[in-house]
Design a protein around this nucleic acid. Structure first.
Lengths: 222, 222
DNA sequence: AAAGGTTTTATGGGAAACCACAAAGCATTT
DNA sequence: AAATGCTTTGTGGTTTCCCATAAAACCTTT
């Protein structure tokens, strides 16, 4: 089991419960917690210099801004910065994010050993993750693995998601069409894009594209 | 001090830390917690029937959906349902929401004794709130009071917010104009609405209205 | 009351969105 | 190979958006 763990999480309730989980339930002797990314980074660096580095980082992704200006504004930035200094550091992301597509993107872009979504059984998941990782493995909850592997669905959704994302970013349908052609994705004609958007509008009861974007953003689909 | 308190919060980390705060730090003998609104409602009703009702409810606003279908889907619905059964019940909302305009709306629409936003010093705030309410008062953090009182700003923002909300819901500028005329709000012409939207597009670097909606939604301004 | 400035409203033209329908392309069945 | 159904693409017309410019209304100053 790990001997020295760092927690980066801005909400005090989560932060304190995590700390007590590690100390009391898992008997980890050295648990340090931070409410800010910058602070976490400095503590990790200091530990590294003094030759007793942290073995595991548990970090949130989003940190509320307040009166203290921060260099590292998000958990992902913290991970990037720390991995440069200490590549062997194990990392668990503990976030409210639960959209499979977003998680998938993070997993492919960042060197993460586990991704736990906050929820009703998060502490249990977290315990399992820590145990697995301390034994040299990695851990991803079962339902997450399932939804990530469901390629059939995600390819379909991926196209819609791409179109919606481009449209939401202000590109015209004409522009989206040329982009899709460049990427060799089919269908790419303006007609087809319109048809797809119309289908989505019907499905979500949207009056027009702007309304559609509002709805899918509220549903956290993009 | 309260003797019997109910907690409704779906994230186990928050839920458990809140429970320990009440039990150990505040010495409240009877603390019951729920991960679901429906469950919280039933527990409160049962306590009421058996003549030992809860005196205080601490509830989150949003609850993750899972495999268990729920009648009460949000904290606000729970508050509404419980206040009908037990009007004297004191209520603290403990939510991630920190937009002053949204909080203001909730405070005017629901009978709430305190609104605490999750954050770095939430536990401290919560302690103060519980103490104040148990002494017959109510409690709203200082910075919240400040931003709510700043009417000058909020009136200006209110107009923009209304226009943006209508547009995001799929209304045409023409339709928004007629709505504003009906409400006797000025300016109400299509021209003026366009001008205002253009200003906002400039300010937020948006390519068009759809993009603007995406941006302000991401910034949680509507 | 006149002058000057700001805000609101009106108008028009080109671009994009919206919508219905037709044509073309592609795969499967017979 | 012809027929069938499905998907993709194209076309045209109406509505709405986007943007520039000008007129009208309102407010303040002199």
């Amino acid at each position: 089991m790990f001997q020295k763990v760092l927690i980066a999480e801005d909400f005090d309730t989560n932060n304190q419960r995590l700390t007590s989980l590690l100390k009391e339930d898992l008997n980890i002797p050295n648990v340090v917690s931070s409410l800010y990314c910058d602070d976490a980074f400095l503590k990790a660096k200091k530990a590294l210099i003094s030759n007793i580095p942290f073995e595991l980082l548990i970090t949130d992704l989003s940190f509320k801004e307040d009166y203290r200006p921060q260099k590292l504004a998000s958990g992902l930035q913290l991970i990037e910065a720390l991995k440069k200094e200490q590549p062997e550091l194990k990392i668990i992301v503990f976030s409210i994010e639960d959209r499979p597509s977003k998680i998938n993107q993070i997993l492919t872009d960042y060197p993460i050993d586990s991704f736990i979504s906050k929820g009703r059984k998060a502490l249990e998941e977290l315990k399992k993750a820590i145990t697995e990782i301390s034994n040299g493995g990695s851990y991803f909850p079962f339902d997450l693995q399932q939804s990530l592997r469901n390629d059939n669905l995600s390819i379909l959704a991926l196209y819609d998601q791409m179109v919606l994302t481009y449209i939401s970013n202000g590109y015209t349908k004409d522009k989206v069409s040329t982009i899709l052609k460049q990427k060799d994705m089919s269908p790419s004609s303006v007609s087809s894009i319109e048809k797809r958007l119309q289908k989505l509008c019907d499905a979500f009861d949207a009056k027009n594209t702007t309304h559609l974007i509002t709805i899918v953003k509220d549903l956290h689909l993009i």
